[in-house]
Write a protein that binds this DNA or RNA. Structure first.
Length: 156
DNA sequence: GCCAACGTTGGC
DNA sequence: GCCAACGTTGGC
């Protein structure tokens, strides 16, 4: 049985890791997520082949800049065990890892950024529950419905 | 750089 | 298990 393809939005600060960086390397382990809800989406929700909207945060203007695909099932984030990493977690052990990630593969860079402003302007079409435009939501990994995925791509 | 929002931590 | 303090996110 093949599960239906799911869709996600993943945020990255372009100064740290941009869509251009992803295009250069092709596939990247999505290290550094240290939020349980975001981790759960990766660990429990993602399947190889799922669609990812790549979002640039903390930049002007913030927005969706391209697409990627989920390229692995979830596995422990190696940076949690690395004392030299800023993502080191002293409470994580190999026996009981706290943080999981997936590999993300480059798919396409948009010709232009679908800005947060535009996305907000389409709030009625996307639905109230869309977490990206809900005030105070800081989730860096969040689910997108098939309808939202289609609608957001149509804005390009 | 500011700061509102909110998740996490740890003392009690 | 409450909740104040603290740290982080991310728009502006």
């Amino acid at each position: 049985m093949t599960a239906r393809r799911r869709y996600w939005l993943m945020k990255s600060e372009p100064d740290a890791f941009s869509i251009d960086d992803l295009e250069r390397v092709g596939t990247e382990p999505w290290t550094g997520v240290r939020n349980y809800q975001a981790r759960n989406f990766m660990r429990d929700g993602m399947q190889v082949g799922d669609g990812v909207l790549f979002y640039h945060s903390n930049t002007a203007p913030p927005g969706i800049v391209g697409t990627a695909t989920v390229a692995s099932t979830a596995y422990p984030d190696p940076t949690q065990f690395d004392r030299d990493s800023g993502y080191f977690d002293p409470k994580a052990t190999h026996e009981q890892p706290r943080w999981h990630l997936v590999d993300v593969a480059f798919e396409r860079r948009f010709k232009r950024t679908i800005t947060l402003d535009e996305i907000k302007a389409h709030a009625d079409d996307l639905g109230e529950e869309f977490p990206l435009i809900r005030r105070g939501t800081r989730l860096s990994v969040l689910p997108v419905s098939a309808a939202q995925w289609r609608h957001l791509l149509s804005l390009e």
